[in-house]
């Protein structure tokens, strides 16, 4: 599916994900957790479609259960003892806490799956090209070499097969040896050929003073608007965090602030922040429909 947010300026993408990921990692309040999990799932499904649904059910659901179980197994704090297992108390608080941390972990992983779809390598290289020029060039080169080397590894393993060294047969040790042979051929090939790459770089003036960094991204009006919105929402959430709107106590007993008008405001800001890309997509969809209906 085409994602409108992916087409925004990398600075907007990166600010959004940094904020959302950090908030998701540190807010243990159930409302915040719920918003983050729900928004991450919706955006992941928007981005990756059926693959995201499969991923969430096949991997994230068992992961959630597993992580939720780990905590009560090792953490015996809390006042409300439900049952004793091997003389260890299992408490209500630690179960709730386990579920909360599981939700947190899972939503972080799902957010990262969205991050991976939106923040492609060239956006990353663009963002850091000025700060760490040499490393971001290395990054770009490694990304160029990896597919090349993988293809060559396949060529080499076919060539090995054609001289009677079928690499997929034999016991573990033989296979490891065959693998190392392929790798060894690949290493020579890669190193010897890369010298020409270095020549090509220097031939095009790499190493001159004052290297700049080109990108085809443009920071437009919409990006400005989005970034301002992001900033406002982040400010609201942070202010809420300072005012303890996101705090909750799990041990020794669960204590949570009652919802007030102010806290609802902070929840809304967090919800809007998390749903920003989805909102943008809906907005764009709606604009298109309207344009078409006029035609």
């Amino acid at each position: 599916m085409r994602d409108a947010f992916s087409r925004c300026h990398p600075v907007v993408n990166f600010t959004y994900f940094t904020a959302v990921l950090l908030f998701s990692m540190f807010f243990m309040h159930p409302v915040f957790l719920g918003i983050s999990l729900a928004a991450s799932m919706v955006y992941a499904i928007w981005l990756n479609g059926g693959r995201a649904i499969r991923f969430q059910f096949l991997y994230m659901l068992p992961m959630l259960l597993l992580v939720a179980l780990i905590n009560p197994a090792f953490n015996h704090e809390g006042m409300t003892i439900l049952v004793y297992v091997n003389d260890n108390p299992i408490t209500l608080e630690s179960i709730v806490y386990g579920v909360a941390s599981a939700v947190m972990f899972v939503s972080v992983v799902i957010w990262f799956s969205c991050y991976n779809a939106v923040m492609t390598s060239d956006k990353f290289i663009y963002l850091f090209g000025r700060v760490i020029p040499a490393l971001s060039l290395i990054l770009s080169m490694v990304l160029r070499f990896v597919p090349k080397f993988k293809a060559q590894a396949r060529v080499i393993s076919n060539a090995q097969k054609c001289i009677g060294r079928d690499v997929s047969n034999g016991n573990l040790w033989t296979r490891a040896r065959n693998g190392v042979k392929i790798l060894s051929i690949l290493v020579t090939w890669a190193l010897e050929n890369a010298i020409e790459t270095a020549d090509s770089m220097r031939s095009r003036g790499y190493g001159l003073k004052g290297r700049t960094s080109f990108s085809h991204y443009r920071f437009g009006q919409r990006d400005k608007l989005l970034l301002t919105t992001l900033g406002l929402l982040i400010f609201c959430v942070l202010a809420g965090a300072l005012l303890q709107e996101n705090s909750i106590q799990y041990f020794p007993y669960i204590k949570i602030n009652a919802a007030t008008a102010r806290s609802v405001l902070v929840y809304t800001a967090y919800f809007l922040l998390c749903m920003l890309p989805v909102g943008l997509n809906i907005w764009e969809e709606w604009t298109w429909r309207r344009l078409y209906s006029k035609l």
Binding site: M141, R144, A194, M201, R204, K209, G210
Partner: peptide, 21 residues
């Protein structure tokens, strides 16, 4: 193959110009 330095076509086109600042 060996002369290409970066992973994107547009970046490769700009490589020399970036070096020249």
């Amino acid at each position: 193959d060996n002369q290409i330095v970066t992973d994107k076509v547009w970046h490769e086109l700009a490589f020399g110009l970036e070096s020249l600042g």
